[in-house]
Design a protein around this nucleic acid. Structure first.
Lengths: 357, 357
DNA sequence: GTCTGGCACTCGGTAGACTTGAGTGCCAGG
DNA sequence: CCTGGCACTCAAGTCTACCGAGTGCCAGAC
């Protein structure tokens, strides 16, 4: 019984993980394509006529047996067609030549979007996440650039009430952060202004992370204020390295999955922005643009695939865009969309013409 | 056939919309309570032993017929129990004595939250939406105070690059807004500073909406900058009257409804923050704290109920908190949670001890 | 009068029997 | 090595019967 079975795979008897022969690859591709489109198990006869295959369904069947043995396909039950495994999708994706191209309608949508969008970077990123989600009908994630390399351009203390002041810090990348300060004693505008100037003279030009001290100014009131500001400033630092995350079209998750439970758990994950960011970063760091099923090692998303594209210009990291969909997502389209939007966003926010009107 | 039927309702033959007699009210209440708990049509025998009823199931049945005729209950089909209509829920809610009380665990959760939470108002509101959602396991909405009555405390122009500057405006309520400006020509820090001072001297103390002009300073460069800032400022005004909305626990919508389609459409609505805000405002303005089914006149949410509580202190409007769940939601609990969180949030952000720590 | 127990009736849901058809594995022959 | 053919499998659909929760109605009791 073993001889006939083991003799079927010919080229790859040793490696077993070696590239599939052309026909098997074509069959696998046909199965994946069809399954992505229909979400139904694919039978041998559907594949038999596919371009690049052109053999009888019986032959396809025997090849499918091999593909199943090698882990690219599975059968939900004996008398059903085949479904790709994560490994099957992976092969399919690796075989795709580049990120693919958008359809004309989508391309127009992108062009239109970037012609019309304007305003602050946050707004642009937010709206871009909506665009991405609309282009693909999957949930989209946009992660903005981190502030870690930005330097401080301005520090200011603004009095809100006799007992409250606001520390306002402007960074060179245009980000503004603030922190409310409770004052121990009533403080005059004058003292605030002097403390503000003190702070500014020592902080402007530094990055957020650099430690600093401000020498005594001779006025106890001012010194006290500067000390409070120091505390506020430090808490600010923590808030700023949390990247800015924008999630677009979470509602579309409900279209992607029909099990309510899946929708719920995936939505819950999208709420934890930290997790999402590290997921994207992780995938990018491993040099991937797609993570399928369990590849990202994140159990709750094992029925999902993630498509990522960097947002960068001249090699400078400006963040990332990502798409979250079912493993049977339209990879070509998703990759194309993520790629294009990531690239154009990179140009926009890195190219210096942000905030045009 | 008519005489025996019509003779059943005794007290309310004329009004028809008059208050239900005690027994019917008790039966209706029992049905609603049970249905909220089980999500299954409630039969007469289940109700017969309920406290405050204590009659045979046959009697309950005949009362149920009346309640159905008056529109408080419906039968999904002939041989099934009864389900409350929106009108039934409405009666039930109106009958509740006040917003109810939270359970001890929830109360502790609230106390703990308000003891521990600190930082900027935005952070507090955001986290509060999470709290509210966790307390009730429904999706929560928190709408922050509007800035319309806040006055300007500081205006500043910060140079980012030779051709970019940032207009930073601080309001008396601690809000900070910014707008990037593209400069036509390279501009020195000095000119920026002078234009900034000009702007500040004319703007500080005003509200965002008040129109303003700045007289010529004698320097064409400065005047030009001031004009650009004017444009940027006006666009800022539009952005600021969009209230701050925080949505907590949207994932819980997937728990509330089992039809994926419903989940999708409700999620889609939550994405449109403007709609959500006006919905809450509208309900509050009509003096309601609960809107059930179609009461809010918003078709896509007809299978939902909305529970709202104002966020205010000393009669001053600071926003609102809301909960979004299925019409068969636990109103007592939801109202209690919204009420408590709304009240404590009002104290916190209005009471001036925000940003402590 | 008002309530109640009793009774016939309704009808959704479940379970089993049967059918259908898409799909498979295997094999013998080209 | 491929292919057509064949027997087999099994999910899904259809039909039937049946169960039981629940109803409406009515006649008798309090």
């Amino acid at each position: 019984m073993t001889p006939p079975l083991d003799s079927v795979p010919l080229a790859d008897a040793a490696g077993d993980e070696r590239a599939l022969n052309d026909r098997r690859a074509a069959i696998l591709e046909a199965v994946v394509t069809e399954y992505i489109g229909t979400a139904e198990p694919v039978g041998s006869s559907h594949v038999a006529n596919a371009p690049g295959v052109q053999v009888s369904s019986a032959t396809v069947r025997s090849e499918m047996v091999a593909l199943e043995r090698e882990g690219y396909l599975v059968q939900p039950h004996t008398s059903a067609g085949r479904i790709p495994t994560d490994k099957g999708y992976r092969f399919f994706v690796d075989q795709l030549t580049g990120p693919g191209v958008l359809g004309p309608i989508q391309r127009k949508q992108v062009t239109q979007f970037f012609n019309q969008v304007h305003g602050e970077m946050e707004t642009v990123l937010e709206q871009a996440s909506g665009l991405l989600s609309e282009l693909t009908s999957y949930a989209a994630v946009v992660v903005g650039p981190s502030h870690e390399s930005a330097s401080i351009r301005s520090v200011q203390l603004v009095g809100l009430s006799p007992l409250h002041a606001l520390l306002v810090v402007v960074l060179s990348d245009g980000a503004v952060e603030k922190r409310t300060m409770d004052l121990q004693a009533e403080t005059s505008e004058d003292v605030l202004a002097r403390a503000g100037t003190q702070l500014a003279s020592h902080l402007v030009g530094r990055t957020l992370a650099q430690p600093w001290t401000v020498p005594s100014s001779g006025s106890a009131e001012v010194d006290h204020l500067v000390t409070s500001a120091h505390v506020a400033f430090d808490s600010l630092e923590g808030g700023m390295d949390a990247d800015q995350v924008f999630v677009g079209g979470p509602a579309r998750l409900a279209e992607s999955f029909d099990a309510v439970e899946t929708v719920r758990s995936v939505l819950a994950i999208l709420e934890q922005q930290l997790v999402v960011v590290s997921l994207l970063r992780d995938v990018l760091d491993r040099g991937l643009s797609v993570a399928i099923g369990t590849e990202h090692g994140f159990e709750p998303l094992s029925s999902c695939a993630v498509v990522v594209a960097p947002m960068s210009i001249d090699g400078q990291d400006l963040g990332a865009v990502g798409l979250l969909g079912p493993t049977r997502m339209d990879y070509a389209r998703a990759m194309a969309a993520a790629h294009v939007v990531g690239e154009r966003l990179g140009q926009r926010i890195g190219g210096g013409n942000d905030g045009r009107h």
